[in-house]
Design a protein around this nucleic acid. Structure first.
Lengths: 246, 246
DNA sequence: TAGTGGTCTAGACCACCCT
DNA sequence: GGGTGGTCTAGACCACTAA
């Protein structure tokens, strides 16, 4: 709960300023549509250069917390625009944000020949013929929400075990912490489909029920496609939210 | 098709540099995962400061065209990550990007009492009791794609006529050019539903067919909610695409 | 005219990667 | 050690808004 900037801190100064400003906004110290101090005032207030102020301000603008009007000032966004609807999240994070306890039932974990559709999405080179396939029923507060099928192009030597998955829950946490793979972006498509008998059974809905189908390609910080994941969501229990900007 | 920066040009230098770099990437002058000149090299190449180079580079990174690795360099993203999947677009722009000719059939255009749900989404003040309601069947290459219902909180005096809409096609173009309202962000949710008899008739599908329901709140550059839009898309003719980032 | 954000410069030092 | 991106400074001028 600091409100000054420490030049010797581990974190960069612009990021310390981001934290200070976000805390004030979250605490309601400035109301929506109210002007916050100008860039030159913050320069003096926090003892940093205007460039550094603008770096912090730019980040908060991209996160939707504040906005600027040329010649007028910098203002707090209305609360609806403050919620980060746009970020790349795992299923587990997604459920937690919705206030549901994430859970899973692992149906299958195996190394398989890559289907053609998966080859294309992951842009597999010819010498790679197999991928790791993981099928899970995902739950929120114990209720089935989605049927998830992942195809992973893991680096040689990297392996995935049921035990790890059971323990950690989140696949992304394992990739990040154990294999040092950073996921930074994803391309996702959404469409409508209806449940096959098998899907209906697993999701506990009548066969033919409408489902939301998400297909996602995940990219590492080096922009290699590493995972292609399909999630079939129950139409009655899931709503997808995004923020779009110009 | 310039490849130098003109200091006296109308456009800012960083933006001229963005254009130059984008043209080279689009032309395939640099291949995916190939390094482009370093920031200090571009400083010399284009006669601008490193700050300006970084401003251009940052914009292209946020658009997904390039990425940077600390201590290594700046690289071209693979093509799949170059397509802008994330931007706020109107239905007309959306159809054009998909290579379909956008069309519409106006069902209703009227000033109505604002329903409670609309009041909440638009955050209407108590003194505002009415909104402009516009219902249209949207088509792609003449085929029905979606049933769109818009609720607009227009500024006093601003009016919308069928003639304008028929002529311009795009509501956003009218708001922008005639009323100088800039739409800069939107919050959108997507879910699955099934067609009522009326919806089925208008969309030319059997009653009970699965549909994709989009609900969108549009924000101006001053972060006022100005439009609440519902679009019911035919499940068999529409797929939604987004790019997510960390 | 004064204050705001938008653009731009010419430096500097640090952290990281590779040889 | 030399090159890369990441952070930061102390200025400057311009474009826009409002009184």
């Amino acid at each position: 709960m600091s409100s000054t900037i420490d030049p010797n801190h581990m974190l960069p100064r612009y990021y310390q300023l981001v934290t200070i400003l976000r805390e004030k906004i979250d605490a309601g110290e400035w109301q929506p549509h109210e002007a916050i101090p100008s860039e030159r005032q913050m320069e003096a207030l926090y003892g940093v250069s205007r460039t550094t102020v603008r770096q912090a301000v730019g980040l908060l603008i991209r996160q939707g917390l504040i906005y600027q009007l040329h010649g007028k000032g910098t203002y707090v966004s209305p609360r609806k625009l403050q919620k980060g609807l746009v970020e790349l999240t795992s299923f587990s994070e997604d459920m937690q944000q919705r206030g549901l306890k994430p859970g899973q039932r692992i149906l299958e974990l195996a190394v398989v020949d890559a289907p053609e559709k998966v080859r294309q999405h992951l842009e597999l080179p010819p010498e790679v013929t197999t991928v790791t396939m993981l099928e899970r029923v995902r739950t929120g507060d114990g209720q089935p929400i989605g049927l998830q099928t992942s195809y992973l192009n893991l680096p040689p030597g990297a392996e995935l075990t049921r035990a790890e998955l059971q323990e950690r829950g989140s696949l992304y946490a394992i990739l990040q912490e154990k294999h040092h793979i950073n996921l930074v972006a994803a391309d996702e498509t959404l469409e409508v489909t209806v449940a096959t008998p098998r899907e209906a059974l697993l999701l506990e809905v009548p066969a033919g029920s409408p489902l939301l189908l998400s297909e996602r390609v995940l990219w590492t910080n080096e922009r290699q496609a590493i995972e292609f994941v399909k999630i079939l969501y129950r139409g009655d229990r899931y709503r997808y939210a995004v923020r779009l900007t110009r």
